[in-house]
Design a binder for these strands. Structure first.
Lengths: 188, 188
DNA sequence: TCCATTATATGATCGAAATCATATTTGAAC
DNA sequence: GTTCAAATATGATTTCGATCATATAATGGA
């Protein structure tokens, strides 16, 4: 349920909590006390500038952890607000830091998790910079990114699903991919 | 010169190397032996699919490290090719893993580095998804992202410099920002 | 089984940003 | 001081993808 290495933590190192839409999970300059695993829902991380402008830093979605960097800072640097009703596992910062210091395997697995996330985000940025859309979709198919449905893929690569469906049609017409089933495609 | 915590490594844990344009820094399925700090130049990470398509995973630019995730894998999963003549510091994987296991401070600083990179990439993805361009540029200015020149900012936020200059003009016309000097702007 | 919802798919239109072009300003190099 | 390159800036045009619309097929629940 919890992603590795957090599943190795002692049970009392974390607790499940539910939040209504619009609740604050934490506030800028608070704590930081915890990092978070979002089981269901959406949480938005926002910062307020000196001029009062709201800046959205990140939108966390289901299955993601957030506020990891607060493990290494003296305060949260943004607000976290639930956009929908959300179920969140709250992981004690102190417990994680302690596990990092006393459990070499935990420490290494956590570092690996972050390193792989860096890799994945770089990849995401790269594919989102691929233009035009037809090449972006082709690249995504070539990499086997169409694992669930086309709409999810579209979101992942930063296109509307309409643009993605159109690109898929054009790729078929050009003989570059084949349709193997409804919503399933493979390279020609 | 080397970003923290790599500057704490023993001198013989790394070595500077120069590569001509088009040279391979490493190849898919090799090693992995090392991670890399790119001092000057551009390095492209590419993968080849079963169908022979080249997929660009990431373009590393000056001042960045790359292939960090290979610390935790049994082989490089892509090729690294220099796009321009490049100066690279090659850091021994074994030395880094050793430092992680024997030096708690090194381990924690490395984990923090990755966590902060995750945070930065999430932020980058978020701002790049901000539409229209004028709001993206405003958000960037509000966050103080214009630290060097407009062209660099444009690249950072995923716009052409023309679009960025135009957005800046419109923001001035709308009274939302002020021009403080050539190429310098602040919130109105 | 029927109904509601979601995914798939394509058509039409529009607008935003890329592209191409050009001028000016500035700073660095010689 | 002059030259050259790079950054700043704006204009004209085009194109790509977003948006809005609509239809069908599949899926899950009552």
């Amino acid at each position: 349920m919890l992603p590795s290495p957090f599943n190795e933590l002692d049970k009392n190192a974390y607790a499940a909590k539910t939040y209504d839409e619009g609740e604050f999970v934490f506030r800028q300059n608070d704590g930081p006390y915890s990092i978070y695993f979002l089981q269901t829902g959406i949480v938005q991380l926002e910062r307020h500038t000196a001029h009062g402008d709201k800046v959205i830093i990140h939108r966390a979605s289901e299955g993601q952890t957030f506020a990891e960097a607060s493990l290494f800072s003296e305060a949260y640097h943004c607000d976290a607000v639930t956009i929908t009703h959300s179920q969140i596992i709250v992981l004690q910062k102190s417990a994680i830091l302690n596990a990092m210091r006393t459990n070499l395997h935990f420490a290494e697995t956590l570092t690996a998790r972050f390193a792989h996330q860096v890799q994945a985000y770089r990849h995401s940025l790269e594919i989102r910079s691929t233009r035009p859309a037809i090449e972006r979709v082709y690249t995504a198919i070539a990499q086997g990114m169409l694992t669930s449905d086309v709409i999810s893929l579209a979101t992942e690569i930063g296109l509307t699903h309409e643009a993605t469906y159109r690109a898929l049609s054009e790729l078929i017409a050009a003989g570059r991919i084949r349709k193997t089933a409804r919503g399933k495609y493979s390279l020609a």
